[in-house]
């Protein structure tokens, strides 16, 4: 592909994409999407949250899962970073701790695809220590 360096190049790229993507379905409405929130405060970033977030961004479309990845601040589980909060449509949010790529893979395969719980869930009673 040719270099994309200016806004004009981007417009050209967009027009090429538009043709290719015409057949693709528009995504689900956002309230039906799986929400994946990665904690990106200092302790999260320092323990690898950025790579975990990129992993979800890359893997979810590859595995045909409609989800939206966002970031949040400190959820108060510094001992368990990186932490990821996942909300399946119509369900309560679940927080997973010590998430690395392997754990993220397991979460996608078991929890996101099948609704099966996996190890590493942080019980809600541990929330917000004072």
């Amino acid at each position: 592909m040719t270099k994309v360096k200016t806004l004009d190049d981007l417009v050209r790229l967009r027009d090429e994409l538009r043709q290719k993507l015409e057949i693709r379905e528009k995504g689900d409405r956002s309230e039906q999407l799986i929400q994946v929130k990665v904690a990106m405060a200092t302790c999260g970033i320092a323990s690898g949250a950025k790579q975990v977030m990129d992993y979800f961004i890359e893997e979810l479309p590859k595995r045909n899962i409609s989800a939206v990845v966002t970031q949040t601040g400190c959820m108060g589980y510094c001992y368990a970073e990186p932490t990821v909060e996942i909300t399946l449509p119509g369900k309560e949010p679940v927080v997973f701790g010590h998430v690395n790529k392997d754990k993220a893979d397991e979460i996608i395969e078991k929890y996101l695809k099948a609704g099966e719980l996996v190890d590493g869930i942080i019980p809600q009673t541990f929330k917000k220590p004072s």
Binding site: L7, L10, R14, L17, L21, G27, I57, L60, P61
Partner: peptide, 12 residues
């Protein structure tokens, strides 16, 4: 703005 309305995935 340029990409608005295109059904791109976050990865793309």
């Amino acid at each position: 703005e340029i990409f608005e309305g295109l059904p791109l995935t976050q990865s793309e």
